[in-house]
Amino acid sequence: MTSASFHATGDVVDTSGRRGAHELLALRRVPAPRPGRWLASAFLLVLLAQFLHGLVTNPGWEWPVFREFFVEGSIMRALGLTLELTAYGTALGFSLGLVIALMRLSGSWLPASVGWLYVWVFRSVPLIVQLLFWFNLAYLYDRLSFGVPFGPELVSVPTMRLVGPMGAAVLGLALHQAAYAAEIIRSGIISVDRGQVLAAAALGIPRRRQLSRIVLPQAMRSILPNAFNELISLLKGTSIVSVMALGDLFYQTQVIYGRNGRVVALVMVATIWYVILTGLLSVLQYYVERRFARGGSRALPPTPRQRLRAALSGTGKAAR
């Protein structure tokens, strides 16, 4: 170490001799001033206050109407339908998506090509077109039959009975979702280090077990953020079923404002519900991701609750 004086931007400090250094070591460290940050924060706070003030004072928002309809019976039933469609669409979509992803990754050319074809077709056709198609399936085939291919039929049912509006909606959403889910799952699987499969194969672990025990749990780390994106997008996307006069959340608010003309208040009813549901899903996402993060890094990040507790007990830095 040199004992010459040392200057960058500040004072010229003489560190020659132990006394000079001791004096510096005793000083308390404070952060650099950041006036820009303060200015930007103040600006944002003013904007936020203005916006909130507007929400409360502008009578155009019609909060009394909002309150009247927010948990009203028909809205609650419509909310139930939205949740039902989202649940079916996600469950069926991701199940089929897993199958298609595995087909695409198959070493055999026919399944791989069929998988590729599926993704191509169902990503190409707009969801709304697909829904109308399934809804009108009865025009194309008025009866659906099950039996030996090209041979005798065993059961035959009228198409309308099997594929009603709800069936068409679920079918359309699930098939559409499956194409995207397949690509998300495939990307997750190919992101897992090849050595993991090699080691599993060297140990004689059965193929199916390799997938369920080793590969998929690790693939989940990159699948989950994208999957939740899709889930949230589907939650709002279900509003498209209103083309088939299915009473989902958004359709029901339309029906009501068509009657009473209170457009803004009712759109807000739907919006706030979507915001709440997305919020719940985001919280769920955090915990699900955390569960699958085990083994990914040396230590898990603390949950918000753990972080809060650490901050309150004054050990915030240590906990991180």
């Binding site: 080691a199 699958f292 990914g296």
Partner: peptide
């Protein structure tokens, strides 16, 4: 490079 199963 070991190839231990990272998730287990």
């Amino acid at each position: 490079d070991f190839n231990l199963f990272a998730n287990l």
